[in-house]
Write a protein that binds this DNA or RNA. Sequence first.
DNA 1: AGAAGATAGTAAACCGATTTAAAAGTAGTA
DNA 2: TACTACTTTTAAATCGGTTTACTATCTTCT
Lengths: 346, 346
Amino acid sequence: MIIKQQLKKISIADIARELHVSKTTVSFILNGRAEEKRIGREVVERVQKFIEEVGYRPNPLAQSLRTGKSNIIALMVEDISNPFFASIARLIEDRAYKNGYKIIYCSTDNDPAKTRDLISMFRERHVDGYIIAPPEGIEDEISALMKAKMPVVLFDRHLNDVKTDLVEIDNMFSTYNATKHLTEQGFKKIAYVTFSSNQSQMLARLDGYNKALEESGYKPFVKEIAFNQNDDLIIGPITAFLKKNKNLDAVFFGTNHVGTCGLQVITDLGIQVPSDLAVVSFDDYNVFKMHSPPVTAISQPIEAIADNVITVLLNRLNTSSQHISSQSIVLKTDLHIRGSSLRAAQ
Amino acid sequence: MIIKQQLKKISIADIARELHVSKTTVSFILNGRAEEKRIGREVVERVQKFIEEVGYRPNPLAQSLRTGKSNIIALMVEDISNPFFASIARLIEDRAYKNGYKIIYCSTDNDPAKTRDLISMFRERHVDGYIIAPPEGIEDEISALMKAKMPVVLFDRHLNDVKTDLVEIDNMFSTYNATKHLTEQGFKKIAYVTFSSNQSQMLARLDGYNKALEESGYKPFVKEIAFNQNDDLIIGPITAFLKKNKNLDAVFFGTNHVGTCGLQVITDLGIQVPSDLAVVSFDDYNVFKMHSPPVTAISQPIEAIADNVITVLLNRLNTSSQHISSQSIVLKTDLHIRGSSLRAAQ
DNA sequence: AGAAGATAGTAAACCGATTTAAAAGTAGTA
DNA sequence: TACTACTTTTAAATCGGTTTACTATCTTCT
C-alpha cells in the first residue's frame, strides 16, 4: 500500500490549526529547534506524528524567500553537450543530491555576456553556491560574487586577479610531457592545433608544448582555430592547415573537440596514422580509445575533479571553512600512450 | 561606462516609497497592466524611468510564491552524460532560455524511485512544465501531474495507458529497415544486442528486428544486458556472448551505449569488421562515424526532436492549446550506411 | 440635482514559511 | 503576597511580490 503523498495544499498554518498550536511551534519543531526552544515533549510528538501522516513538506519557495537560502547550486560549464563537461556534471549532480542540494546547470558557450546574464539570474534566485568553468571577461562578476560572500568554486581554468577556490589540472606539465613523448619517439615536426583562447588552461597547454619543443630545439607549428560549437567551422581550418603543411610528422590537438574534428579530417584526407602523421590529443574520450589505431591522449581525472569541486563547495556551504581564504587544488593527468604516437619500427 | 546593477536590495516597496505611489501601482506597471488598470501616463513614465535607472528586477522567488509560476522547466533524462541526451538537453536549453524559461535537468538512471523523488521535488518548487524520458513504473506520477494540469511532454519513449504529449521516433521501422539492410547485404546470422528493458522504444526496436528476420526466415539471436551506467558491466556480457557465438556474421546494437561498448569488445577480440562480423548500431555518434571501418548507424533527428519537444511544451504553457487533448509526434530516422555493414565483394 | 459611469489610484490580504519579542503558566522563594 | 526565574507557547513582523476590493474624484446624462 502506497501512502498518498499530500502534494496538494497543506501548509504550516493548516497543521497549526489542526493541532491547536501555533505556526511558530510547528516551525520550531520542523527545524529541529524544539529542544532549544523548550517545546514540550508531548507537543513535539503530536506534531511530528501528524506531519508524518499527512506527508507534509515545507514549501521551498517560501523558505527561500524568507531565509535567502535555496539549496540550489549553479553549475556553469562551457557546453553541457561536451562529454568532458557532461561527465563532470553528472558526477557533481549525484554528490550534490546526496547532500540535499539541487544543481541547475547551463552552458556559457564561453560567452561573457551570456554568462553575466546567467549569473545575475542565479543571484536573483538566491542560489547558494556556484561552480563555474569561467570564460574570460567575467572577472568582475566573479569578484562581485565573492564580495557578496557567495561560495564560488572555479574549475578547469582560473581567472587572473581573482582569488577563488579552484580545482585544476596540471595543464602545462601535461602537454609538456606528451610533447616530450613525441620527441622521444623521434618526431620532429610537431604541430599543435588548438582553439584560439586566452583561457588559463589553454595558455598553459600551449606553454607546455612550446617548452618541450624549445628543449628539443625543434620549431613549433601552432594553428589556432576560432572557438566554435559547430564542427564544420573547426574541420575546415584543420583541413586547410594539414593540406598546407604536408611535411609535419606529428600533430597534437589541444582539446577533445579539436581532437575529434582533427581525427575526422585525418581520416577524410586518407592520412595514415602514425606512419604519415602521429597524433596526440588532450582529453581522453571513447573516440580516441576506439580509433584505429587508438589515439594517445591526456586523460583528465574526471572523478577526482568532480569530487574535489563538490567537496570544496560543500565545505564552504557548511561554513566549516570560513577561515580559509581560498584553496587551489591541482590534479595530475594521465598520458595514455597508444598506437597513434608510436614510431613504427624502422 | 557600465551601469552598476543594483543586485542588492531595492524592492517594490522601496520604489513605491521613493516615488510616493503605492506598491499596487508599481506592480501593475511592471506587469504591463497599467493601461488596463488606468494608471495615468505621467505616473507610468515616472515609475518606468526610475526602474530603469536603478536596474530593478523583481524577486522571482516572491513572484513564484504568490503566483505559483516559476518559469522553470524540468528536464529529466536517463543520463545527462549520454551524448544523445546531452545534445538534446543542450538544444532544449537554448530554446527555453530564448523564451524566458530556465531548465533544470537531472538524470533518472531509469530508476523509478529516484524519478519519483525528483518529480516530487520539482512539484514542490512549482516548476511550470516537465520534459521527461520516462523510466517504466512512474505511470502514476505522470498521471498525477496530468491531473494537476501540469504540462508534460514525454520523449524518446512513451508509457502505456498514459495520454500525454509525446515526441518519438519510429523505432520499429528503424530497426526493421536496418535489419533488412543487413539481410539484403547477404548476412544471415544477425544478432541483436540490447539493454534488457520494457521501455516502449526498446520493445519497438526489438520488434522491428524480429519482424525483419521473420520475413527473411532467419533465426533471431537476441542478447539482453542489464541496464547499467558502468561500461565494464556491459563489456563483460558482450564479450562472453561474442566468444560463445562465433558463427554470427552480423551484430546489431540497440543503443549508442551498447554500441560503443560492443565496438570496443570487437576491437579487443581482434574481430575484423565487416569480413568477420558486420556491425550496425542504433543512434549515430562520433565514435561510429570515425571508426574504421565507419559503422552503419541509425541516426536520430536530434534537432527535430528537441525542437518539437520544446515547441509543444511552450504551446501548452502559453495556454494557446488548451483544447488539444494530447498530441503525438513521430519522427523519422536516417540509416547511415557505412563500411561496417557492407558485404565485401566476394 | 442626482444617478450612473468612467477615471485614477490604493489599502490590505495573501502566498508559506522563519524569527523576534513577548506573553502566559508554573514553581520557588523571600 | 509579591517577586523572580524558568518553562512553554505564541502573536506579529518579515521576506517581496500579486491581486482583490474598495475609495475618491470627475464627467455625463436625464
